[in-house]
Amino acid sequence: MAVVVWIVEGTWPACVDAARAHATADTGIVLLHVTPADVPGAAHGAFAGLLGRGHPERDPGTRVEHLAAASARDLLQAAADRLGLPCTRVERTGRVEREVVAEAEGCELLILARDGDRTHLGPHSLGPAGRFVVDHAPCPVLLVWPEAPPVPPAMPPPPPPRP
C-alpha cells in the first residue's frame, strides 16, 4: 500500500498524524512538499525587467529558489520526525495542485488538509488548490481538519420542496 501525504506549511501535523493512524506495517508512506514555481519566477522577472539588465549575478530569484528548497527540506524533515515511521520524502516544484495529483498517480490513498476557510463547515473550507486535488485525485482521498473542526450553530435548513 502506498500513501501520499501532502505536506503544507501550517497544516502538515494533522496530515502526518492521520498517516500514522492509518498506516500499517507494509504501508509505503511518501511525504510530499510542492514549492510553487511562480514565486522564484516573479523574483527573476522583476529583477530582469526592472533592475537587472546585465547583472545576472545579482538576481534575487536564485536566492529565493535556494531559500524555498531549504524550507521544503526542513519541513519534510520535521514531518518525517513526527511520523516516526520509514518514509520517502519528495520535493517537487511547479503548479502545486497539478504536482500533487501527479504524485498521487498509482497510490492507494492521498492525505491532505483543508486549505480554505477553516472557521466554517462547508465547501469554502477547501481553497482552490485543495478543491482541484480532491476533484482530480486518481485515488481515494482522506481530507482532514488541521485543527478541531468548527462547531456549527445548527445544521443548515433543508432546501424547500420542489413544486
Rank of each mutant, 00 (worst) to 15 (best):
R58W: 09
G84L: 05
D38G: 06
P146Y: 05
A102K: 10
E9I: 04
A80I: 00
A2F: 03
A104Q: 04
A42N: 09
L31R: 07
R82V: 03
V30R: 09
R20E: 12
R63S: 10
C87N: 12
F47R: 02
V16W: 10
D26Q: 12
S125R: 07
A148L: 10
P161Y: 00
A154I: 02
T119Y: 04
S71Y: 06
H44P: 01
S125M: 08
L83F: 09
V16A: 08
P123C: 09
P138V: 01
S125N: 06
F132P: 00
A70L: 08
V5D: 08
P153S: 13
V101R: 06
L85C: 04
S71K: 12
H66Y: 09
V34Y: 05
C15G: 13
A14D: 02
H124F: 03
C139T: 13
L50F: 11
V144M: 07
V4H: 07
D115P: 10
P160M: 08
G28Y: 01
Q77S: 13
A129C: 04
L126S: 08
T27Q: 11
V8I: 11
L83R: 14
A70V: 05
P159G: 10
A148K: 01
Q77R: 11
W12R: 05
A25K: 12
L51I: 13
D74K: 09
P56C: 10
H66F: 06
E57C: 01
F47W: 15
A129M: 02
W6S: 13
T35V: 14
V3G: 01
P150I: 12
E99G: 05
H136M: 03
R92C: 10
R89E: 13
D38F: 12
C139H: 08
R89T: 14
F132Q: 05
R53A: 14
A104I: 01
L75D: 05
E108M: 01
Q77A: 15
P153M: 10
G41S: 11
P159L: 15
V134Q: 05
V30E: 14
G130T: 02
C107T: 14
A104W: 02
R53I: 03
